[in-house]
């Protein structure tokens, strides 16, 4: 191997990178416009008995982000961008199914145990190195959960958007008010996901991050992963479209 050469390894397909980066601003608009809507009836809080621990949201939060009295604005953005959120998410799931990418993303037997080790590792409670593969168990669980959450947001959203026409859907989620609560909790879930995601990306470093842009990660000879990494058996058996 000439020293001049750099070894790179394909990591993320182009389609998945596009779905990822398109989703970022679209989900942002959905969360932001959803907050404009939520303000008009901001009834949720974390409570312990009669004690209110945290109100969603404190007045200072609204004021700082210029949220108040923009219900119409929020609804207009929300109901325009819901289409993009749906189309992008739908194409992503369709792509993972057709391309076989789902094999890397779906948790399998052992994923939960592996996720536990990843958690211990990340909390610095374990010295055991992270599993060397495209997505570890924790990632598989996280990236599958986020898709299920997306479907949940879409369905609970429809359930509160058209509760008469789609009454069966509203009923399925336990009624109008519960569907609205689930819709809200899922949004909080995205925000928490985002925080952990960013922390993990920072922790994983530049090579990992740039792979989400270029699609390739650089393999350094000094990096034991270059030697240790073994393709899993499923990789030899790509799904046919």
């Amino acid at each position: 191997m000439p020293d001049e050469k750099i070894t790179i390894r394909k990591k993320h397909p182009l389609a998945i990178r596009w779905f990822h980066w398109v989703n970022f601003p679209v989900l942002f608009v959905m969360i932001w416009s959803g907050t404009l809507i939520y303000w008009a009836n901001d009834e949720y809080a974390l409570r312990l008995g009669d004690l209110e621990l945290f109100k969603f949201y404190p007045p200072g939060f609204y004021k700082a982000l210029n949220i108040p009295f923009r219900l119409a604005d929020g609804m207009a953005w929300h109901f325009a961008f819901m289409w993009l959120f749906f189309i992008n998410g739908f194409l992503y799931v369709l792509y993972t199914m057709i391309s076989g990418e789902w094999r890397y993303l779906l948790p399998r037997r052992g994923s939960f145990k592996e996720a536990w080790f990843v958690l211990l590792h990340d909390l610095r409670l374990s010295k055991k190195p992270l599993p060397e593969k495209k997505f570890n168990g924790a990632q598989q669980i996280a990236y599958t959960s986020i898709v299920i959450m997306g479907v949940g947001s879409l369905l609970t959203g429809l359930a509160i958007y058209k509760p008469t026409q789609l009454h069966w859907l509203t009923w399925l989620f336990g009624g109008y008010e519960i569907a609205r609560l689930i819709h809200f909790v899922l949004t909080i879930g995205y925000c928490l996901f985002f925080l952990v995601h960013i922390a993990q990306v920072v922790k994983a470093g530049w090579n990992n991050f740039q792979a989400m842009v270029t699609g390739w990660e650089r393999v350094r000879p000094a990096d034991p992963s270059a030697i240790m990494d073994e393709p899993e058996q499923v990789i030899d058996n790509p799904a046919q479209p």
Partner: peptide, 11 residues
């Protein structure tokens, strides 16, 4: 999806 590797120049 194959685990594709390539040798490329720094440029």
């Amino acid at each position: 999806m194959s685990e594709e590797e390539r040798q490329v120049s720094p440029a």
